[in-house]
């Protein structure tokens, strides 16, 4: 198990390093680029005194490096700073919104992952026949459609024309689980459609890749049934690529969620981020950006860790 632990430690260390660099990049991206935060908050007509005061208040006169480190140490202590526009504590505002977003993403993942794997298997089973062609045509189309269009089409057809669900997805703590699920039914449906196409296409490719291996032919020539070939020989080798596909697409879901929250006016992180980008509320944008990046990096890390763990060459070294 020696080399595998080293590899895992390396991979986790790499992710942490990456996250640190990303935090620096996000910090630098919002401060070094042209455009003065104080100016954008107060507008073009602000007096020089007001600007100077605000700059001092925001600590803009200190060197960037020291501001970065005080920001970073704040994050380690759970202090994300205060929002410029409302003066509220960012960590407190994000808390409930993050759990709302995770709630939405969780249900979307719960539906889309098994469905994508099932459809991927189906189209491998019927490769080059009509079910495969149909699935691939539908996925090609849905990859080409912007998320918000899928959102509005479903909203138009299901919420407005059929009147089944509400067109806005408001949830609050007072609602029961059933009420919450009812409220997020439409956004979950849209998110599922959005990630399904990519996930299914990649699953299909991953399984096909395994099925073309020579050891699958060996298994067939042993007289095993089609099911046994898949269960005993294809599946153990396909787990790693499939988990990889799933993780990469869950990372993709993180981005999809931003747009979908805006479409359905859902009180989550995405909506919060977009609102504050428009208001140029830099501390909020930094905090949200960092959280999204952390989730994204974390999912990619899990994908790599699964690949390492599933590799027989690493698990059983010579």
């Amino acid at each position: 198990m020696g080399p595998i632990l080293t590899l895992l430690a390396q991979r986790i260390a790499l992710s942490l390093l990456l996250l640190l660099m990303v935090s620096a990049l996000i910090f630098a991206g919002t401060l070094i680029l042209p455009g003065d935060v104080a100016q954008s908050i107060l507008g073009q007509s602000a007096t020089p005194e007001a600007l100077a005061n605000l700059r001092a208040e925001l600590g803009l006169n200190e060197p960037a490096i020291s501001r970065y480190f005080s920001w970073l140490s704040g994050i380690f202590h759970g202090d994300l700073g205060t929002a410029l526009t409302s003066g509220q504590d960012i960590a407190a505002s994000i808390g409930s919104r993050l759990s709302n977003t995770l709630f939405l993403a969780f249900w979307a993942a719960l539906i889309s992952v098994p469905l994508a794997i099932f459809l991927g298997l189906l189209s491998v089973r019927f490769k080059d026949r009509w079910p495969d062609k149909l699935i691939s045509a539908v996925t090609l189309t849905s990859i080409s459609i912007p998320e918000f269009l899928i959102g509005y089409v479903l909203m138009y057809l299901i919420a407005v024309k059929l009147g089944w669900f509400s067109s806005v997805a408001m949830i609050n703590d007072g609602m029961s689980l059933g009420q919450k699920l009812n409220a997020i039914a439409l956004p979950v449906m849209v998110l599922t459609l959005v990630v399904l196409a990519h996930m299914m296409r990649m699953t299909r490719a991953a399984i096909l890749n395994v099925m073309q291996s020579a050891y699958i032919e060996t298994a067939e020539l042993k007289g095993l049934s089609g099911l046994d070939v898949i269960r005993k020989h294809a599946f153990p080798n396909a787990i790693a690529p499939i988990v990889n596909v799933v993780m990469l697409n869950l990372a993709y879901l993180v981005v999809g969620v931003v747009v979908i929250e805006v479409v359905f006016v859902y009180p989550g992180m995405g909506q919060y981020l977009v609102d504050h980008v428009a208001k140029r509320d830099v501390p909020v944008v930094q905090a949200c950006g960092l959280i999204f990046a952390a989730v994204y990096i974390g999912l990619n890390m899990i994908a790599d860790i699964v690949s390492i763990l599933a590799n027989p060459r690493l698990r059983h070294p010579k």
């Binding site: 291996s213 020579a214 050891y215 060996t218 298994a219 020539l221 042993k222 007289g223 095993l224 080798n237």
Partner: peptide
Amino acid sequence: DVRRLRGSEVTYVSQSAAASFNPAK
């Protein structure tokens, strides 16, 4: 019947054993 034949009456040795063995077993 063909499945009964394969792996029991007739078996196969390929050129590349390295590729023909399942790496996970």
